[in-house]
Amino acid sequence: MRRTKLNLLLYLISVGFFSLLRWIWKAKKRILIYALSVGALLLLWWLASLTLPVLFSNPLAQKVVPGPAEVLSVFAQEWPRMWEHMLNSGLRVLWGLLLAMAIAVPAGLMVGFEPLLNQIVSPLIYLTYPVPKVVLLPILFVLFNLEDGSRIALITLVLTFQILLSTRDAARNVAANHVLSVRSAGANRWQLYRHVVLPASLPSILTAARVSIGLAFAALYLAETFVKPRYGIGKYLNEAYSLNGYTRMMAGILAMGLLGFIFYIALNALERVLCRWKFRGG
């Protein structure tokens, strides 16, 4: 009996050990690929910093694209303040994204899945979609008293339309066979949304969220530039630019890129959890 327990324990330990090794190996591969990408980006950047001053005769061209080493050194020096800018900007984008999802996902699913609603709502979407939401910023500043609410509202507006359209299209294209299969099992409307429409649309929703992150940062930059908050990457960038501090500006751009990268990784991880089925099998 004792020997059986010992064998079981040894078996579990070895399974655990090999699973850990496998995980490290898998993660190592992914980390290596990311490291190679970052290396390639730094190389291109370095080459650009060398060639641009040669290509452009403008004396300022010597300064506008500083090399990666210089920028990384400034980024490290500025870190005690930089992280607060990053945190505040990151939170604005996060809130904007969450609010946009909360509005766009249910609305998009219903508009896409209910043909009558689609007929009524789609013209409204097409009319308002092309309007750059940034033009509403002055109104938002009035409504939200120049506070963070206005910046978050702008990001929400920008993202809502992107996610709404993708969600609507995904819901419109839900396989008829899946709907039929669940309806024949006696599903009501709510169950149909829960078991079919939402999970079928989820990959498209997350892709839309990922694609929209770039737009969210563009909106953030503008919102943090119009009326400057105490902390924010947009504010940092704008100050650096007004002082001709191109190295600081590049450090700010690097910080914004890093934030975008964090969002991208987080959305990827979320997809791996919520759409596990996509990553299994052939």
């Binding site: 299969s181 024949s184 078991h195 999970p199």
Partner: peptide
């Protein structure tokens, strides 16, 4: 009454 469809009508996410 139960219905079996051509590709079994399985939901890929379940």
């Amino acid at each position: 009454v139960a219905l079996i469809l051509q590709d079994a009508g399985l939901l890929p996410w379940k």
